[in-house]
Design a binder for these strands. Sequence first.
DNA 1: CAGTGGTATG
Length: 769
Amino acid sequence: MMVLETSKANAILTVLQGCNNLTRLKKIQAHVIVNGLQNHPAISNSILNFCAVSISGSLPYAQHLFKHILNPQTQAWNSIIRGFAQSPSPVQAIFYYNRMLFDSVSGPDTFTFSFTLKACERIKALKKCVEVHGSIIRTGYERDVVVCTGLVRCYGGNGCVEIARMVFDNMPERDLVAWNAMISCYSQAGYHQEALRIYDCMRNENVGVDGFTLVGLLSSCSHVGALNMGVKLHRIACEKGLLRNVFVGNALIDMYAKCGNLDGALEVFNGMPRDVFTWNSMIVGFGVHGFGDEAIYFFNQMLEAGVRPNSIAFLGLLCGCSHQGLVEEGVEFFHQMSSKFNVKPGIKHYGCMVDMYGRAGKLEKALEIIGDSPWQDDPVLWRILLSSSKIHKNVVIGEIAMRNLSQLGAVNAGDCVLLATIYAGANDEQGVARMRKLIKKQGIKTTPGWSWIEVSDQVHRFVVDDQSHPDSGMIYQKLEEVTRKATMAGYVEDKSQFIFHGSCSEECLESSSTYHSEKLAIAFGLAKTPEGTSLRIVKNLRVCRDCHEFTKFVSRAFNRDIIVRDRLRFHHFKGGLCSCRDYWVMVIQKLAQQQNRMHVGKGKMEGTADNNNLSAAVIPAVEAKDPASGPSYYCNESTGKNQWEMPYDTPLVTHSISFTSVRRLGGGYGRIYWFKHRSPIPTAAILISKGCFAKECRELIVSLLPVQQYRMFPVHGGVSFCNVIETIKEVTGTFCKEACCICDQLMDSLIPPRHLAFLQQTNLLRWFN
DNA sequence: CAGTGGTATG
C-alpha cells in the first residue's frame, strides 16, 4: 500500500513539474484528492509553489490554498512570500512574513529572508529591511551569500550605499552575483566612480564577468563619460559573446551616445537584437545631440519594426526636434502622441514643447502650452519660459514667467539671473538692481558644479577652485600655462559680470569662482594624456560662456579635440570652433533645474517608507475574506482602512487573539497585544511602542487592559520581533505558540467598533490619527 | 524540491 502511494505521489509530482497552466493544475489537483494525497507535503507544496510563483499561476488561488493548510511548513510560507514579493503588491509578502514569525511553528530560513528582502527592496521598506537584517543575524544566516546579496541590494536600493558596502565587505565569500549587486547598487545610486573602482577589486578575485556586470559598469561609464573604459567593456562583451544580449547592447548604445560617439552607438545597434530600449536609446541619443532628423528617422524605423513607442521615445524625438528647430514636426509628433499612439504627454514632453516654441521665438505660443498643460503649478515649465524670454529678450513674457515662479514660491538665484539678464538687455538698470537685491536677500543657493574627466581608466572629479586632487599643485601650474597659450591664441578672459553677459551657468554664481571645474579638468587632461588624443569632459551644469570660449581656444592652441558634455548637450571643440556653433548661448537651462523628481512618485515613496516601519506598520491586510474560514481581517479597498470583521467579544479559540492597537502614542506608534492561555480571557499583555508611551496614554491603556500582568516595551528596528518573542516568553512564563499567538500586528487602524466609539466619546481618538 | 542581479527618460 505504502509503495503504491509513493509511486502514485511520484507520478503526480512528475506531472506537476511539467504543468504550465492553472486549468491543468486544477485537474491534477482533483486527481490528487481522488487519490487521497492532498496532505502529501511534497505535492501540496508543489501545487502551492506553482500557483504562487509561476507566471501562469494565480496568487489569489495560492492564498486560498495556503489558508487551508493546517500548519504551513517553512516551504509553504516561502512559496507564498516569494509569490507576493514578485507580485505587484510586495507589501503582502511582508505581511505573510510577519505572520510567519508570529503564527507559525515553522521558522524562517535563508529562502524566507531572500524573498522578504526582495519585497523590502521593492517597496523601499528600509526599516523593515533593518529589522529583517536583525532576524538574519539572530538566526545565524548572515553568512549566506544569497541572503547577504539580498541585503546589499535592499540597503542599496533604499539609498544606504555605505551600509550596503559594509554588508558586502563583511561577507565571508562573494560570488559573481554579489559583486554584480554591489556594482549595480553603486551605479544606480550615482556612485559611478566607486562602481568603476570596485570593478578593479573584482578582477583580482577571479569571479569572472557576465552581462549583469557589464550593464552596471556601462551605465556608470555613460554617466561619467568614461569612453575608454566603455570601449574596454565593449571588447570584453565581444570576447564573452555578449553582444547579442539586449541588455548589454542597450547599455553599450547608451554609453557610446552619452560619451558623444554616435558612430559607436550605431555600430552596436546594427549588430544586435532590438527591443524598445534599443530604439529609445538611439532616438534619445540622437535627440540630445541635436540631431532631430536622425531621431525622426529612428522613430520611423521603430514604427516599421512594429515596436510601439512609449513616452521616452517621444521625449527623445521632441528633444531632437526642439534642438534642431523642427517646430512643425515637433508639434505634429506631440499631437500624435496622444491621438495616434495613446501615450499621455508628461511634464517633460510639455517642457520640450515650451522650449521648442520658446526657442523659435513663439513665446505666446509657449505661454499657451503652459496654460493648456496640467502642470501650471510646476515651476519647471515657467522656468523654461523664462529662459526662452531671455533668448528673445522679451521683458513682458519674462516678467510673466517670474511672477508665476514667485507665486509658486519657487524663485531661485538662477531665475533672478535670467530675468536680470533680460532687464540688462533692455537697458533697464532698475530691473537689474531689483534682481540683484532679490538674489542677495534670498542667499544664493546653487547646485555645486563639477566636471569629470577620464584619464587612463580613472575618473577624476573636480569642483570649482578644487584643491583636493593629489596633483593639485601640478594642475594649477598647468592651468596657468594653458591659459597663457590660449590667450596667445586669442582667448580673452570674460570676467565681466555674469548678469550682463547672458551666462546661465550656475557655476558663474559661485563666489569669485576663479577656476571653474572644467578648466581644472582640461588642464589635468592636457597634462596627463598624450598629445593628439581627445579629451572628454562631463559636467553636471551648463558650460558657461567664459569656459566655452576658453575651451575653443585651448582646442586650437593645443590641437586637441575636446568634447564636453554638459547638462543638456554636447560640445565638440575642434580647431577653435565648437560644434554647437555657439548655439549654447541660446540653449537654455531648460530641464537643468527640473524638479519633477519631486513630483514623480511622491506619495508612493513617502507613504510606503513610513508605512512599513515595523511597529508602525500600516501594511494593509488584504487577506481575502473567506466566510468559510471564520472571522478575518480585510482591507476595505474603497477606504483603504483595515476593517475589523470580528465581533469584539467573540470568544476566541486557540490560534486567535484579541487585539487592539493604539496609534501615535507619545509621538511614536503603539500597539497592544493580548494573550490568551487557551481561555477567552487575556492573561497577559505586551505594549509595544516605537518610542516611549506618553504618560497619559499609558494610563489609558493600562486602565483598558483586562489583565493584571502587562509590560511596556519600546521597540527598535532590527530586534523588535525577537524582543516581542522574548517578552512573550517572559510574560507568559512559557513560549506556547498556541497560547500566545499574536495576530496581525500590522493592522494599525484596526480598532474594534466598540473601542472606537469609546475613543470618540472620550476625545482620545486624536492619538489614533 | 526552492533563492539573489541588468538597460533608456531625470
